[in-house]
Design a protein around this nucleic acid. Structure first.
Lengths: 189, 189
DNA sequence: GACTGCCTACCTATTGGTAGGTATGTGATA
DNA sequence: TATCACATACCTACCAATAGGTAGGCAGTC
């Protein structure tokens, strides 16, 4: 198997494990079982678990920012963009996956600093994106906000992140969509 | 040392560990270090980690429901009650602690079923309480809701849970209070 | 001939947990 | 009141399983 195949298979499987069991609770042995490669061989691709974790966040972040950029550039109204953004969370949870950085955030005190920083950066990117979209919507006179864009962005992110946690615990992914919709309706004057 | 002293010290310390590092990431060795008792002696109080985990949730739940009952019985207006409820989260995070079941929810797929059920029950108790308080507020004509009490309760819980996660990752506890306040303002017509 | 991708075989540290012992009660009975 | 039985709360010394990680070899490919 080509380098990239196994490597990306490992990354994909690691992502699933982190987003279901959490970073602390998954091991190279788990990956070994699922990919069908020896534990030691995983170290060939990812020398340490920390490097695997870093790579995981980085590639996820890269992929996600690309999607956010595409969404921001789309020629639809602000509200649709925000709803699509919310659907990212609703869909991933419906597929049985926690949002990556929501999953990582819980064990953040256990994570190596290199990963902590990336988790933080991840949340900042999300907040910044939401803030920019909201600000744009205001400029375009598409919507009015009941509080400053930054605060509103944090509220929307919190709502989605929290709805994911609650949905995860209650095993009911259906609560995310209406919760976010409502938060959005309540926010936009 | 009396039985209850060590036992409750173990529980208290375990709670801190779960609420900072997560359930998967803490060990009997951690407890041993912090309490000054041998690892094997912990098994005398809590035969297995699962029993410790169950006891932890149960006693936390007992303590919390008592507080919720007291708050519900208080003779203040609905909005004050909700704000006080929100302060539980804001304060615990300011003290460097994630909400217990928020922390557990992330690793829920790793937890034994006995603990999963309790985490679920925990969220249901919170939602039920919020719903009852909101319903009461409507009946007393203190407030009007833009959507049904159940949905509104889920939204408030999600907001707090999510704001805790975001605050935890960004290491900025200050975002919880305004986020919840805003969610509440937006919810109440 | 060097690099890639995997292997077997091994390492040390740590995990949750057990076996069996000891000191200090505590309560019932002769 | 002395003592016997039993429980409590801790201990040392283990255990098998698993954690993440290393050393070195070997087949194929550029």
């Amino acid at each position: 198997m080509a380098h990239t195949d196994t490597r990306s298979a490992l990354l994909a499987e690691a992502e699933i494990l982190v987003r279901t069991k959490g970073y602390a609770a998954f091991s190279y042995a788990d990956l070994s079982d699922r990919i069908g490669i020896r534990k030691a061989s995983i170290h060939h691709h990812f020398p340490t678990k920390e490097i695997l974790g870093i790579t995981l966040i980085d590639s996820y972040l890269e992929h996600f920012t690309a999607e956010l950029d595409a969404l921001a550039a789309k020629r639809t109204d602000t509200k649709s963009k925000l709803l699509t953004y919310g659907d990212f969370f609703a869909e991933s949870l419906r597929d049985g996956l926690m949002p990556l950085c929501g999953a990582l955030a819980a064990d953040v005190a256990y994570l190596p600093i290199s990963m902590q920083q990336r988790v933080k950066k991840f949340f900042e990117i999300h907040t910044d994106w939401l803030e920019a979209i909201l600000r744009d919507g205001v400029t375009q006179r598409e919507l009015q906000l009941s509080s400053p864009p930054r605060k509103s962005a944090l509220l929307l992110l919190s709502t989605l992140q929290g709805a994911s946690v609650v949905a995860w615990a209650l095993k009911d992914p259906a609560i995310i969509r209406p919760a976010f919709r409502q938060a959005l309706e309540n926010l936009i004057k």
